[in-house]
Simulated assay, not measured.
Amino acid sequence: MHAPSWIRQHLAALRALLVLTVLLGVLYPLAVFAAGRLPGLSDRADGSLVERNGRVVGSSLIGQPFTDRDGAPLRQYFQSRPSNAGDGYDPTSTGASNLGPEDVVDTLPDPSLTAAGREDGNARKSLLTQVCERSRDAGALEGVDGRRPYCTPGGTGAVLAVFGERAADGSVPRPVRVVSLNEQQGVVKAPFVAAYRGVRVELARYGEDYAEGLVVPVKGGAPDEPAVPADAVTASGSGLDPHISRAYADLQAARVAKARGVPVEQVEQAIGDAEAGRALGFMGEPAVNVLELNLALDEAHPYRG
């Protein structure tokens, strides 16, 4: 005698549940755990934690900030690459900004909120402005020219909205109005350029719609090869990159040497010792692990400030 079809269906579902529970809920986690205990992998599975004097000071695989409680860079330490993971270097919120090269226009903050000392949650800085701001700040910290193409001296994206009749190619040969989109009236005194094709440039006003204007980035007079390297102004795809380029490390060497009171040659030597080669010998570029470099300097040349 055969059982009713609905009972057979329920029994089949129960068997599938039990099999998948054993496979995916028991055997698979155990296999992953066992793989993580293999020689050469156990350290990474545990987070590649770095200890000094019995205290965990970071991870060799996850970047971290080297700043004071107010977020200002500590001059005796090499600074890490920027991070967009959560509030910065958060392994539970790993990710990039997902902003592309065409993201050049800011969403301006409400002046009534900023005047009251409050943050406008709807305001947003474009990728271009983030890059410009970071380059300006890095240049000031390292004592070099922080200017970049398509950036204003104030550290925002140098972008205009040009109004007028469009030509066949989409350009506006005879503008009737020009607005500096990322410079807000009441925040800056004057636009980064006074006129564009004979038309006076205006500052942007909060709440105005400039969507009909042609967006025109202005390259400006910054050098084509900026003094501040690209990895100093852009976040990595994971937001957790613990490495910086050799160029960015070399840029910081003079500041760190001065703060620690040692010859810059000794700091350069420490950079070379902390430099890692290309992945698998051919992928990417040589890089410097920031945490390992800073720890090596703390041991060899302690900060006396």
Rank of each mutant, 00 (worst) to 15 (best):
P4E: 02
W6L: 07
I7T: 14
Q9G: 15
A12L: 08
L20I: 10
G25D: 00
L27G: 03
Y28D: 01
P29N: 00
L30T: 12
F33L: 11
F33G: 00
A34M: 03
A34L: 08
G36T: 11
D46W: 05
S48N: 15
N53D: 15
V56Y: 04
V57Q: 02
S59E: 10
I62H: 04
G63E: 06
P65N: 04
F66T: 15
T67C: 08
D68L: 11
Q76S: 15
S80Y: 03
R81E: 00
R81F: 00
P82Y: 02
S83P: 06
G86D: 00
G86A: 05
D87M: 12
D90V: 11
P91F: 04
P91N: 09
T92S: 14
L99N: 15
G100E: 07
V105W: 04
P109K: 09
S112A: 15
R118F: 05
D120S: 10
D120M: 08
A123E: 00
K125F: 03
S126N: 01
S126Y: 00
Q130L: 13
C132Y: 09
C132L: 06
C132Q: 12
E133L: 13
S135L: 03
A138W: 01
A138N: 14
A140R: 09
G143R: 04
V144L: 10
R147K: 11
Y150M: 05
C151T: 07
T152R: 01
G157S: 03
G157N: 02
V159I: 14
L160R: 14
L160Q: 08
V172D: 02
P173C: 11
N182F: 07
E183F: 06
E183I: 10
G186L: 12
V188S: 05
K189Y: 03
A190V: 03
V193C: 05
V193R: 15
R200S: 04
R205Q: 13
G207L: 06
G207Q: 02
E208M: 10
E208T: 12
G213Q: 09
V215Y: 01
A222H: 05
P223V: 06
P223T: 02
E225W: 05
A227M: 06
V228A: 06
V228C: 11
P229K: 02
A230F: 03
A232E: 02
V233R: 07
V233F: 00
T234S: 10
A235T: 12
S236R: 01
R246A: 11
Y248K: 14
L251Y: 04
A254Q: 01
A254E: 10
R260C: 07
G261D: 08
V262E: 01
E265K: 08
E265D: 12
I271R: 04
I271F: 04
G272W: 08
E275Q: 13
R278M: 00
R278D: 01
A279S: 13
G281P: 03
M283L: 14
P286M: 02
A287V: 13
N289G: 11
V290K: 02
V290F: 00
V290A: 06
L291Y: 07
D298S: 10
E299V: 14
